[in-house]
């Protein structure tokens, strides 16, 4: 289970790349891929190097438009990170 104190990074076989046709950011892993929207791509980029979930949440909150509720940012980013972990795309420690 991921929480604010978890340390994580993208798993070794996962790559974040732009799709040459659509220009959208993709998380690529063996035989599969995820086509990401802009916010998901930003979160995934922050996972490229080992970091804490708290750090990711703080940086996404700082980048979000003024007035975006912090609770919404935290819950939606956490849900996205859990979806990546469920697919084995993250290496998580320290939770």
């Amino acid at each position: 289970m991921i929480d604010r104190n978890s340390r994580l990074r993208l798993a070794r076989q996962v790559r974040l790349k732009a799709d040459p046709r659509s220009g959208k950011q993709m998380l690529l892993y063996p035989e599969r891929g995820l086509e990401l929207n802009e916010i998901a791509a930003r979160v995934a980029a922050l996972c490229a190097e080992e970091t804490t979930v708290g750090e990711i949440l703080d940086r996404m909150a700082a980048a979000a438009a003024a007035g975006t509720p912090r609770e919404r940012i935290d819950s939606e980013v956490l849900e996205f990170l859990c979806a990546l972990e469920d697919r084995g795309l993250l290496v998580v420690s320290g939770s």
């Binding site: 993709m26 998380l27 690529l28 035989e31 599969r32 891929g33 995820l34 086509e35 990401l36 929207n37 802009e38 916010i39 998901a40 930003r42 979160v43 980048a63 979000a64 438009a65 975006t68 919404r72 940012i73 939606e76 980013v77 849900e79 996205f80 979806a83």
Partner: peptide, 15 residues
């Protein structure tokens, strides 16, 4: 940056 729910579409590359 305008906030939107982070989302993705899963693609089976081999198919």
């Amino acid at each position: 940056m305008k906030w939107e729910t982070p989302s993705f579409v899963e693609i089976n590359m081999s198919a």
